[in-house]
Design a protein around this nucleic acid. Sequence first.
DNA 1: AAATACAAGTTTGTATACAAAAGAGTAAAA
DNA 2: TTTTACTCTTTTGTATACAAACTTGTATTT
Lengths: 230, 230
Amino acid sequence: MNSSKPIVRKSSNSSVDRIYERLKQMAMNYKFRPGEPLNEVELAASFGVSRTPLREVLNRLVAEGLLDFVPRRGFSCRALDTKMIFDLYEVRCGLEMMSAKLATERATDAEVSTLVTLWKTASQKFGELSPLECAQCDERFHEQIATLSRNAELLHSLQAINARAHYLRLISMEKVHYRHNTCDEHQLILKAIQKRNVEAAVNCMSAHVSLRQEQLVEVIKEGIARLYMT
Amino acid sequence: MNSSKPIVRKSSNSSVDRIYERLKQMAMNYKFRPGEPLNEVELAASFGVSRTPLREVLNRLVAEGLLDFVPRRGFSCRALDTKMIFDLYEVRCGLEMMSAKLATERATDAEVSTLVTLWKTASQKFGELSPLECAQCDERFHEQIATLSRNAELLHSLQAINARAHYLRLISMEKVHYRHNTCDEHQLILKAIQKRNVEAAVNCMSAHVSLRQEQLVEVIKEGIARLYMT
DNA sequence: AAATACAAGTTTGTATACAAAAGAGTAAAA
DNA sequence: TTTTACTCTTTTGTATACAAACTTGTATTT
């Protein structure tokens, strides 16, 4: 007997689903200048859809913290506000520490081993990767740890924060000295988890995640500058 | 010279704004049975608007974790999934501890004093309040602490979690023995903050927030039962 | 009787239309 | 020159229309 209806949900052919990821990527990478109003008709036309599904996506991105919305004035990219970024990173740090703690307590030995070998090989060619690839690697690493924490809400929160921090993470990965330690620090974190040393894991994660304030200011400055350079 | 244009934004007369709070309240209080599909035309009619603004609100509530959405099957209230609730409370506990720590470090003496006296008087008539009022008091307390943490992102995250946990909090407030300690524990937390004792503040907060698992299971069970009693 | 096929009725997904508000530009007045 | 008033244009907010997908019920076939 052949199998029943195909379960595979082909990336849903709805307009909303098609444009959601694209628009999200654009917002994450600040393809729109902060504050500059997004023209709905123009944007809809560029995606080949009408305003109705576009606005549904825009609303969703507002709720995710990627866009701003002012009634009667429309949608726009969120400003790169220094205080907001600081707050965001502070929350991220707390959640990442929690993630490290729970992963240490809950991951199986096999899961940790897999990650250890995975990142051992990955670190060897880390130097050749583009900044974007480095950023994506880093994001993936942290999501993998969060997955091991066995807490779907925690994973989801961290993913949301990562989306908002993506632009700055990318910039920081272009500075060689930021990128330099990434892999070693990942190894340290994994080793601590492997030894089931919660305190060490949390401390390594904290050290890895928390840029010093001056560095963060530096990166934000660079990010803003880049937005306004033609 | 009379003042310029009224700055007061009268709760924005757009349809979306008008129905957003109402619909959010309904979702928070599980006025819809989980999984039961929300009929858009019916709902829109009941609010006296068309489907377009309604769907914008529904999408927003999905992004906030209050509703579910399945393409071509529509919107529905999220199920009271035990694992999900556990995860949610675990994240909440982490964020509340962070909130207590930061508030201890950053609040002014005056701010803390205000809260201390406010809750000292409030605790005297706490026994006479309805469960709903108790729940709202508790929510307000935690939001006040988060405000003192000076981290807008943290406050926002906690508000989002509180909205999702509201239904269960309300139920737990109906059990007298849960409600009983609320005020005393709030006092303890404030005292620790007042003494600038970070560790004590964090521990008090942790103890206050984290129900034991059996208790949480109990509350969830009650919550589900109540949903399906005519 | 169970299974299949088909038709009618719902409900969602999206385009389009139009009114109301905001913005831009120009001319008149201080 | 600056301010104010007014018109024209653009853009948002929302209702409505309609097609495609899903459901349900009935009839037909095995």
